[in-house]
Design a protein around this nucleic acid. Structure first.
Lengths: 193, 193
DNA sequence: CGATTCTTTGAAAACAGTCAATCTGTGTGG
DNA sequence: CCACACAGATTGACTGTTTTCAAAGAATCG
């Protein structure tokens, strides 16, 4: 299962067999059945995880106990609670498998060590972080500027591999609207075709 | 005016006189009168700017020509169009001075060079990026989970130095609500004290 | 099949947006 | 120094959208 992560990196940068071996020795494989948690609110997130297969989401609970979806991830994406990871503070989010999933997990220490030992990873990781930040800026812009319907369309177009794989009420909570409103948007949308 | 930037860095990491000199030689001072643009939509953002004094905002225009405020910045903050800067693509945002402002501007090339020449800057810059990313995650969470009133309160509490310095209709566009709604939230809020 | 989870529907109420008019404060030029 | 213009903020009436609540339908899974 490490091969998926190796393939991911090899597509972007050439790694020697020794480097791959080093990397493998620092990863560990984790299988998560549907509904299992990779991280729960209150824990410190000391790892990052690469999704080999399956589907997960991160979400937060508000004061009334309502769930708000922060992110969906599938194959070839990374998932982490960034704030907890970078500050060492208790996580405010939960990360849960929406399907049976396979992950390659890297501890923060291992990740740092690999970055030192394999300098070519540096620009790659920087690029991932930059893309991630830009995506979050786009999401903010959509959130403050677009109607629920436009946000839904953007979501479907931006993540076609995700939207038909996750429950609609979670999509609604990702878009910041109620599940009923999402239902109505969709039926309106279906008619207008 | 470089002294403000020097002080900013020196507070976080010790720099030798030579390093400071190198840095200074790569910065240039820019004065922006109120309403002037540091960056306009369509241009490529090839620099980052440190605010020495004054106040600026970045905003985007939607298809109907309405303004949506992405960010406010004051003294000791950095401002840049991240997507344009990192991808070299035309900016979708505008950066405009809300007051007469003074900036220290660093070209992308200079910034990269300084990072290579002064390795101690690396962790510092990483930390700034991380904080910036975490802040944007928090904003997304508030935007999808909280009511306009809660968002307003959070904004006022999080950025007390900004909210009483910028026009309210820009605060409204930052929060993703109309200026009239913000007025009503505020009057409601004032009564409830 | 029965239980759980997810989605849809309808009706009512709450909420936010729009439009148009008015008000307030600031600053500029006569 | 006043008057006017301008940008910004507020108000009210109205409209349209979204939420909420309750109930019922689908779909999925053991």
């Amino acid at each position: 299962m490490f091969s998926a992560l190796a393939a991911y990196f090899n597509e972007k940068v050439h790694l020697t067999p020794q480097e791959l071996e080093l990397m493998e020795s620092h990863c560990h494989y984790k299988k998560l059945p549907k509904k299992a948690f990779l991280l729960q609110e209150g824990e410190v997130c000391r790892f990052s995880a690469f999704v080999v297969s399956g589907c997960l989401r991160s979400y937060r609970l508000d004061d009334e106990g309502h769930e708000h979806t922060l992110k969906f991830v599938i194959k070839d994406w990374w998932i982490v609670d960034n704030e907890s990871y970078s500050n060492g503070t208790p996580a405010q989010s939960n990360i849960q498998a929406l399907e049976d999933s396979e992950l390659m997990v890297l501890s923060k220490e291992s990740f740092q060590l690999l970055l030192e030992q394999i300098p070519q990873l540096r620009p790659l990781v920087d690029r991932l972080q930059t893309n991630s930040f830009n995506a979050s800026q786009q999401r903010i812009y959509k959130q403050i500027s677009a109607s629920p319907e436009e946000r839904y369309k953007t979501f479907v177009n931006t993540y076609p591999d995700i939207f038909n794989r996750v429950p609609l009420h979670m999509v609604a909570s990702y878009l910041g609207i109620s599940r009923e409103t999402l239902t109505r948007i969709r039926s309106h949308f279906a008619k207008s075709k």
